[in-house]
């Protein structure tokens, strides 16, 4: 096992050293400013009306919700966008040829790029750690809830990273990758709701008050996953909590969604590695 680990380390070490030591990626500066903004947001939310407190909400919970939503927001956008220019950027700089000729296998190239992106996000979120760890002290959340949330977040980040890398292999220019990544994010978050609406339109317009209340494909949207996660926190903490729902055809718990995303990420990576050389030879770089 250590031999295998050493091999993995050897494959990704050049990329990591390159990105974080030689190129001196300054992600953490960005990140400190974001976390400062979050602290401000937390204090704003701290000024909740007394009714909120009377209803059983507590600071810890509301702080955690703000930080978590911010992390979800930042990580979704940054991981996809950053991943989607990792390889296209090499194409634009005309260094991809050198990289392909440098004795690295496609798997190592893709894997290193994924590792770089994950480290980048981790670096970005490092300053958030004390903020999050402080939340349970304020009440309303437990470390178990936070831990589960972070696991789900990691699954989502891995999925978005792998999808971003696939996009990056497919397009030549940074801007086409970024715009395609944005389209991809819009689709994966909202597209499933639109599909459900289209399918169940006839019921929606006659019988139901809210059209998007019928859920089939929308179960796969990350929005649903996060809704389920926050619902689960609420139902764990408040015994009389019942999430609002209509006509649900497919219901996935947030763990199931996370597992699906992880499997999708693995599949995307395999596809990317398989098509990498063939696609580049075909597109003539």
């Amino acid at each position: 096992m250590p031999a295998a680990l050493k091999k993995i380390y050897n494959s990704i070490a050049p990329a990591l050293i390159f990105e974080f030591i030689y190129r001196q990626n300054h992600a953490s500066y960005v990140s400190y400013s974001i976390s400062a903004l979050i602290i401000c947001a937390c204090f704003l939310f701290g000024q909740w009306p007394p009714e909120a407190e009377a209803a059983g909400y507590s600071y810890g919970n509301s702080f955690f919700t703000v930080i978590m939503i911010c992390m979800i927001f930042v990580s979704t956008i940054v991981s996809t966008a950053h991943a989607s220019i990792l390889i296209a950027g090499e194409k634009e700089k005309k260094t991809l040829t050198l990289l392909r000729m440098s004795g690295l296998s496609p798997f190592e190239i893709i894997f290193s790029k994924i590792a770089v992106n994950l480290c980048f996000i981790a670096l970005l979120f490092l300053p958030f750690a004390p903020l999050i760890l402080a939340c349970p002290l304020l009440g309303g959340v437990t470390y178990a809830i936070i831990f589960r949330g972070l696991l789900v977040l990691s699954a989502a980040i891995i999925f978005f990273t792998c999808s971003g890398i696939l996009i990056s292999v497919l397009f030549k220019k940074n801007y086409s990758c970024i715009s395609f990544a944005a389209t991809f994010l819009l689709f994966i978050h909202f597209g499933f709701f639109v599909i459900d609406d289209l399918i169940y339109d006839k019921y929606g317009s006659y019988y139901l008050f809210r059209r998007s209340a019928t859920k089939l494909f929308s179960a796969f949207s990350p929005l649903e996953m996060w809704k389920n996660y926050f619902d689960s926190i609420s139902s764990e903490l408040y015994y009389n909590f019942h999430p609002y729902s209509h006509n649900i055809i497919l219901q996935l718990s947030y763990t199931e969604s996370a597992v699906i995303y992880l499997m999708a990420a693995a599949l995307t990576t395999i596809v990317t590695v398989k098509i990498f050389e063939r696609y580049l030879k075909w597109r003539e770089d």
Binding site: F18, Y22, R23, K93, K94, T95, T97, L98, M101
Partner: peptide
Amino acid sequence: GYMPDLFGLYEEL
């Protein structure tokens, strides 16, 4: 060892 006619370099290194 292949040296392309047009090549890029990592300028910041």
